[in-house]
Amino acid sequence: MAVVANGEYKFPSRDRVENYYGHQLLFACWDHHMLMAAPFMLFGAPDQKLGDIIEQQLKPLMQPDPDFDKIDWDAIEWTKSGEPWTPDFNKTIKQNGLVHKEQFCFKTPGLSTLVPPQGE
C-alpha cells in the first residue's frame, strides 16, 4: 500500500543510519521480564565487540531485576527477528549480523520472580 497524495510523496527515514555519525542503534529485550517496561535501546559502532555492549550497556540496566543474579548466561535462549540466534560476544556487532535498529531478545527459562509464567 502507499500514501494517497496529490503529488510525489517521498521522504528519507528520520532514523536512517547516516544520522548516527558512524554508530548504530540496537534494541534488546529480556523476555518475560517487564520490571523494565520496554526493550532497551543500545548504541554503538558496528566494529564494537558485542560482548562490550552487553557488559557496559545492557547488564547495568538489567541489574535491578531480582532474577538478574540468577541468570545462567550459558543457558540463555537468544532470538533475532523471532528466529533462534547464537551471538558471539567476542565478535563485533557487524560480525554478529546485527544491522541498524536490530532487536535481539533472550529468554531465561525458570526465572519468574516478578512476572508469573503464563498459564499458571
Binding site: 500500500m1 502507499a2 500514501v3 521522504f11 527515514s13 528520520r14 535501546m41
Partner: peptide, 20 residues
Amino acid sequence: EQEPEKYVQAWLPMTAMMQE
C-alpha cells in the same frame, strides 16, 4: 504498512536523542 512513506519520517524522541 498501509502508508510506510508517511511513518518513516516520524521524529521519535528516544532515537532523536542519540542524533546530533
